[in-house]
Computed example of a mutant assay.
Amino acid sequence: MITRSSGQHVFIALGTPWLDAVVAFLEPRARVDPWIMRGKMAIGDLLITVLDHSSHAALHRDRGCALRRHVADGSR
């Protein structure tokens, strides 16, 4: 179960197409940006990534940090 602290936000990033999302997830330097997400994450926020696939599996949950921020705001 994911618990949220006061002031902490939860974001959902949708990876579509799913295969590009897997490539981008495994190789952050890949030249694909398949993530759809609204808002900007701050350090400590929670991120749930979901692949757009017929099974809609959750790929990962993460607390926002400097290394993962590119997924949230699209910057590389």
Score class of each variant (00 low, 15 high):
M1N: 13
M1S: 13
I2Q: 08
I2D: 04
I2E: 06
T3N: 13
R4N: 04
S5I: 03
S5R: 13
S6M: 09
S6Y: 06
S6I: 05
Q8A: 03
Q8D: 05
H9E: 03
H9W: 02
V10P: 01
V10H: 09
V10D: 07
V10R: 07
F11I: 01
A13F: 03
L14M: 09
L14G: 00
G15Y: 04
G15Q: 02
T16L: 04
T16V: 12
P17D: 06
P17C: 05
W18T: 02
W18K: 02
W18A: 15
L19Y: 07
D20H: 10
D20N: 12
D20A: 14
D20G: 04
D20S: 13
A21P: 03
V23T: 05
V23C: 01
V23E: 06
A24F: 09
A24R: 10
A24P: 00
A24C: 13
F25G: 09
F25D: 02
F25K: 03
L26T: 03
L26M: 08
L26S: 13
L26W: 00
E27R: 15
E27A: 13
P28S: 09
P28A: 12
R29W: 11
R29E: 14
A30S: 15
A30W: 08
R31G: 07
V32P: 01
V32A: 07
V32N: 12
D33P: 00
P34W: 04
P34Q: 09
W35M: 07
W35I: 01
W35F: 15
I36G: 03
I36H: 12
M37Q: 14
M37V: 07
M37S: 04
R38D: 07
R38Y: 11
R38G: 11
G39V: 05
K40H: 08
K40N: 05
M41Q: 09
M41L: 11
M41S: 06
A42D: 09
I43Q: 05
I43T: 08
I43Y: 01
L46G: 01
L46S: 02
L47F: 02
I48D: 02
T49I: 12
T49E: 05
V50A: 09
V50I: 15
L51N: 03
D52W: 02
D52H: 13
H53N: 15
S54H: 13
S55G: 10
S55N: 08
S55Q: 11
H56V: 10
H56K: 12
A57K: 11
A57G: 11
A58H: 09
A58W: 07
A58G: 04
A58F: 13
A58S: 13
L59E: 02
R61E: 06
D62L: 12
R63F: 08
G64T: 04
G64F: 01
C65K: 11
A66G: 02
A66E: 14
L67E: 15
L67N: 10
R68F: 06
R69V: 01
H70E: 01
D73Y: 08
D73G: 06
G74F: 06
G74W: 07
G74S: 11
S75C: 06
S75F: 06
S75Q: 10
R76N: 07
R76D: 09
R76F: 07
